[in-house]
Design a protein around this nucleic acid. Structure first.
Length: 555
RNA sequence: CUGCCCGUAGCUCAACUGGAUAGAGCAACGGCCUUCUAAGCCGUAGGUUACAGGUUCGAUUCCUGUCGGGCAGGCCA
């Protein structure tokens, strides 16, 4: 495998050794210059060294450059700017990159840094009290893509969905459905104050009335039709909404390996045991009839109630039990993807886990929090859906915008910035839409390759000297960055790096495409160009795969 | 009042965690289809990176403060 950065690193440290300059390996950073004039790779090593050596950085850089002999991968090393050393790939270097991309095919860009260790991504985890909204959509898009990215970094990934099916909100759901069954509408004074008012509550009530059956997680719940049986209404309502959420997630190309129910940690006593253990470990105390956890021992700004004076548990206790369960299942890393409105739970859950004294790392689990999404149409903010009442549903977006474009829009910005989802932009079938821009590049390449009648083995015989234009060098440079982008997206837990990269790559390709013809008489040039766009096609496809967006052969 | 996130072109957002001339798309203007897909390309215009200090060879990025927006701070979830 080709490790250009490692090779540069070695070249530089060899040179420094011969010059008797002391430096630890860690300090050698290889960068990727923005413009092609600055080369394919660049090192700021001379700028870092100059001060200690009391020399001009450019002087230091020149010393290093003079020390390096000729290298097959590079056509030249160049002193530039305040003291950068720029590395320009040779034709051979570029051809090796193209060949590697073609040969590795769908494996190109992946690495093994995760070493097959177990990693869990928990995401969406919506309460089963209503249809998924656009915020869940952002969570689904980011979480699912994160799972794909971690997989590409060599982790053994589990995708998990956690249902809060045990709290007060579920009672409110059941009461709301019951009210509807009894003919009480949200406008009436005796509708539950904290009830859910969307039209979907009526749909559940009607399904309950006609004795519908619903199967979720291989368990079938059949409505009893008994309006006074609140427990039956509750079970049916939860099954109904879980089923609906699963259908929406499937339409969003999002799949889970494990569904975990909050209620299961009550049933198996895990919640009780957690409180017991925290008490035994001396982190709990009684005050005003409640049991408190001294979370201030672990960085919280005030202690938190675990067991309420009425004997019930507060919401974060089952959360701790759940995360202990994750730890016991052997996940080296857990990434919880949630809305930023939950950020206050982080300290509590971690504090609870520390109090268990199970040698769980202090920064475990990790969190990726996404900020709010607002929706606009006709330059107006859209706040409601017909069915859910108070928010825009994920289903609305999938129906209006399509799965690919919705996913792309929700992924393309970094999680911690708020985003505005412009439905007009996302639905436009023109060049206003970035997702089509990328997919179109892929489809264009497919069209050319299909007409070329040349197979992969023939293309691999291309003559590297013939790829000599600026467009070609730029495109190859971009392609070679893909593995680094995959690492970066994983390190930062940010899928948006992939989206940004793909937009840039598609741009490089479209420029190249418009500047050249491919199906030409000169067999040698044709072969070289087709090899390059075959490599481009692979990277576009692999990148889109990481976003869960399709790569169509035709558009 | 306190904590977290954010503030970049008219709008929506990037900027490879401190690098070189801050980049894309949309909106505006001007060009390119008899040629492999024009859902594309080329060009013009658009900036005191909210503001004020600080750190250093170098700051959109790190630190302090101010202003503005969002979210949290329940024996709710």
């Amino acid at each position: 495998m080709l490790h250009v950065k490692n090779q540069i690193s070695n070249i530089l440290s060899d040179a420094l050794q011969q010059l008797n300059i002391e430096i630890s390996e860690v300090d050698i950073h290889i960068e990727r210059p923005k413009t092609l004039e600055h080369g394919d790779y660049s090192s700021n090593i001379a700028l870092q060294l100059a001060k200690g050596m009391k020399k001009n950085p450019r002087e230091v850089a020149q010393l290093i450059i003079d020390q390096v002999g000729s290298e097959q991968l590079f056509s030249k090393l160049e002193l530039a700017g305040p003291g950068f050393i720029n590395f320009h790939l040779s034709d051979i270097g570029r051809s090796l990159i193209i060949k590697e991309i073609i040969q590795k095919d769908d494996q190109y860009g992946r690495n093994t840094s995760g070493a097959k260790q177990k990693l869990q991504v928990e995401f969406v985890s919506a309460n089963p009290t209503g249809p998924l909204h656009i915020g869940h959509g952002r969570g689904a898009a980011i979480g699912d893509s994160l799972a794909r990215i971690m997989d590409a970094n060599g982790w053994e990934v589990t995708r998990e969905f956690y249902y809060n099916d045990a709290g007060q909100q579920i009672n409110n759901l059941a009461l709301s459905v019951q009210s509807r069954l009894k003919g009480v509408t949200p406008e009436d004074a005796d509708f539950p104050e904290d009830g859910y008012r969307g039209d979907y509550i009526l749909e559940i009530a009607e399904a309950f009335k006609i004795l519908s059956s619903i199967t979720v997680d291989r368990e079938t719940v059949t409505a009893t039709g008994n309006v006074d049986d609140l427990e039956a209404i509750k079970q049916f309502s939860v099954a109904f909404l879980r089923n609906e959420q699963n259908i929406d997630l499937a339409a969003f190309q999002t799949h889970f390996d494990v569904f975990t129910l909050e209620s299961s940690f009550y049933e198996n006593e895990a919640v009780h045991e957690v409180v017991q253990l925290l008490t035994d470990n001396g982190f709990a105390y009684k005050k005003e009839d409640a049991t408190w956890l001294r979370t201030t021992d672990f960085g919280d700004d005030k202690d938190r109630v675990m067991v309420k004076s009425d004997g019930g548990y507060t919401y974060f206790v089952p959360d701790v039990a759940y995360h202990l369960n994750k730890w016991q299942r052997g996940f080296v890393r857990v990434i919880n993807e949630q809305g930023a409105d939950h950020h206050s739970t982080i300290t509590r859950v971690r504090a609870g886990l520390q109090g268990l004294q199970k040698k769980i790392p202090q920064d475990w689990p990790e969190y990726v929090l996404h900020q709010m999404v607002t929706v606009t149409k006709n330059n107006q903010e859209v706040k409601i859906s017909k069915r859910a009442g108070s928010y825009v549903t994920l289903r609305d977006l999938i129906d209006q915008v399509g799965c690919d474009a919705t996913r792309f829009f929700l992924i393309a910005r970094k999680p911690d910035s708020q985003l505005v989802f412009d439905i007009d932009l996302a639905t436009s079938q023109t060049n206003e839409n970035p997702v089509y821009y990328i997919q179109y590049a892929h489809a264009r390449i497919c069209a050319v390759l299909n007409q070329s009648e040349l197979g992969q083995d023939q293309l691999l015989q291309f003559n590297e000297v013939l790829l000599s234009t600026k467009h070609e060098h730029q495109l190859i440079k971009r392609l070679s960055e893909f593995p680094e982008i995959i690492s970066l997206a994983a390190e930062e837990s940010s899928p948006h790096y992939i989206a940004t990269f793909l937009k840039d790559l598609a741009g490089d390709f479209h420029s190249y495409y418009n500047a050249n013809k491919f199906l030409i008489d000169d067999q040698n040039i044709k072969c070289a160009r087709l090899a390059l766009i075959l490599a481009t096609k692979n990277v576009l496809r692999n990148g889109l795969q990481l976003l869960g967006v399709s790569a169509p052969n035709k558009m």
